[in-house]
Design a binder for these strands. Structure first.
Length: 532
RNA sequence: GGGGAGUUAGCUCAGCCGGUUAGAGCAGCGGACUCAUAAUCCGUCGGUCGCGGGUUCAAGUCCCGCACUCCCCA
């Protein structure tokens, strides 16, 4: 991720959605972050590739499919088409691929990967002991068990069924994760930015230092068979996590299209929620090392969205569907809000009041109104034609300086995956321009013909400032900026998405003489408090 | 039980390796202005920096203990 990544590959991934989940704003948050990064880097000239998809294997999927009396494949097809692809539409994600773990390109190459590890001696057969709940038909973690009461006093019982669990033992295949303890620690040390943010890194390093155990990576088909067959033993299937992690490479040609794979891998940054950080920062690089593949350049663990101070949850009725927000505020506002209001990497509080307040203050009154007042004056004083600027005063030069700095600072922040900081940097230009208009009083200049040249300059500065803002904000609020761009340029400057970010701050690109077109209100005031 | 992180104005948060009167945005209050989606601009009120010790010439900023919140693991 250098400052000049022209033509370089920028490969960003999100975790794949567990297909049985219901989409909520947490999923959407991760997607938007990855999408903003991908769009930003694409506009900077990189060959930017955003991957997302669905994780579709496992016993729970099999069970819910059975409960709905359809095959697991039909069940996941339905969920993908009814829930997950629409989610991407809802929040305006521009992904380059969508991988499903049930696709052949995934399954076949997961098997190749496993065979390679098996041949290299990193996988062996061993016995796995665990607490098995017959009701759930699965092994339980200790966290899922509670102390029994009544007739089961003194025993561990399943939290769901309240019945004792059985200690079962089965033969499984194991991955020699323990052998990678030192290699991982070395890797973390040599690649200090591998795990971000810093707090997440501390946690992972401390975990690995305490020692790693080998990892069971298969399940006997006697229990269930919705998964990828172990290539050398068809009585077992691959454990879901092992299967799921490999999507990041099977999607870009691992085992199949080596040229494509070489071009994309290693991933530039893999965005994950902090709950699954350990899988991505420990198990995943170890798997890759075993296969002699480079680990990704960076794993970025973002925080939780908190609602009322707690992690969202369905059981507490704090789960929020993204379209509840976009139906009222639109996808741009969704994207802007979560990206600007929350420091990426930290937990962040969501509330309807905060969303509503920021929408009003920043998008409607700040940016939207700036566009509105500028174009209204161009229309009113110059019949809608962008005027030609004369000599710039110190005040004008100050605006230009702020624009240039906004570009540099935003770009620097994006390199550090500090999305909120990047947006804040851009917003300095919004504020500068609003202040500039107030201090230059174009309405006063318009009263006397002698001030015409000055008025032309002032309104050119405002319009050109909007041009810079359109380019900088396109990755975050693509719909609104596209409208503004169309109104400002009449198609004379090419597509907005093709505007190079590195040159966004080069002043004077907007062409005088162009007739600006009508512009809808970008972010209409939302009066009704639908929020609750 | 072990590990990681957090606790700073009404709200959401910045405060890097300790150093002048602790900052921002929003909300509140006062004023200016009218091009604009009563919008913008200026000014202003507001904090014993979770609690208790310690180190230091000097501590939100370092050390120890405690309390509460969250995450991970067993």
């Amino acid at each position: 991720m250098s400052a000049n990544s022209n033509g370089q590959s920028f490969y960003v991934t999100t975790p794949i959605f567990y297909v049985n989940d219901a989409p909520h704003i947490g999923h959407a948050y991760t997607e938007v972050a990855a999408d903003v990064l991908a769009r930003w880097h694409r506009q900077r000239g990189s060959d930017s590739f955003l991957l997302t998809g669905t994780d579709e294997h496992g016993e729970k999927v099999l069970r819910t499919a059975a409960a709905n009396k359809v095959s697991p494949k039909d069940w996941t097809d339905k969920l993908v088409h009814d829930a997950w692809l629409p989610l991407l539409e809802t929040i305006d994600i521009d992904n380059q691929d969508f991988i499903r773990t049930t696709e052949e390109r995934h399954e076949v190459n997961v098997q190749k990967f496993m065979q390679k590890l098996y041949d290299a001696g990193f996988i062996y057969q061993g016995s796995f002991k665990g607490a098995y709940c017959v009701g759930c038909e699965e092994y339980k973690n200790k966290a899922d068990l509670i102390d029994g009461t009544g007739e089961f006093e003194g025993q561990d019982v399943c939290a769901i069924h309240s019945k004792p669990v059985e200690q079962l033992e089965e033969n499984n295949y194991f991955f020699k994760l323990s052998e990678f303890e030192q290699p991982l620690l070395n890797f973390y040390e040599q690649n200090p930015n591998f795990i971000q943010p810093e707090s997440a890194k501390n946690e992972v390093v401390a975990f690995v230092r305490r020692g790693l155990e080998d990892l069971s990576i298969s399940r006997s088909k006697e229990k269930f068979d919705w998964g990828i067959d172990i290539p050398w033993d068809d009585s077992h299937i691959t454990y879901v996590w092992f299967d799921a992690l490999l999507n990041y490479i099977t999607a870009i040609g691992y085992g199949q299209d080596e040229a494509e794979f070489e071009k994309r891998w290693p991933a530039t940054v893999q965005i994950v929620g902090k709950d699954i950080l350990r899988f991505h920062a420990v198990i995943w690089p170890a798997m890759l090392m075993a296969a002699e593949i480079k680990p990704p350049q960076q794993i970025f663990g973002h925080g939780w969205l908190l609602v009322g101070g707690e992690k969202m949850s369905k059981s507490k009725l704090t789960g929020i569907a993204p379209n509840q927000i976009t139906d009222i505020f639109g996808s741009d506002a969704f994207r802007y809000y979560f990206m600007s209001a929350i420091a990426f990497g930290s937990d962040g509080s969501f509330s309807w009041e905060d969303l509503s307040a920021r929408y009003q203050a920043e998008l409607a009154n700040g940016f939207g109104n700036l566009a509105s007042r500028t174009l209204a004056m161009v229309r009113k004083y110059f019949d809608g034609v962008i005027p030609t600027p004369s000599d710039y005063t110190e005040i004008d030069k100050q605006v230009i300086k702020v624009a240039e700095d906004a570009v540099l600072n935003a770009d620097k922040a994006m390199d550090e995956v500090a999305i909120h900081e990047a947006i804040n940097s851009v917003w300095t230009l919004v504020d500068e321009l609003n202040g500039y208009i107030t201090s230059q009083e174009p309405w006063a200049l318009a009263k006397d013909e002698v001030n015409k040249a000055r008025l032309e300059t002032v309104l050119y500065v405002c319009s050109e400032g909007l041009r810079v803002l359109s380019v900088l904000l396109a990755p975050v609020i693509p719909k609104a900026t596209a409208k503004l761009w169309a109104a400002l340029t009449e198609g004379k400057l090419g597509e907005l998405a093709d505007q190079p970010l590195s040159e966004a701050g080069n002043w004077g690109q907007l062409l005088p003489g162009i007739a600006v077109s009508e512009l809808d209100v970008l972010f209409p005031r939302i009066e009704a408090e639908t929020a609750n």
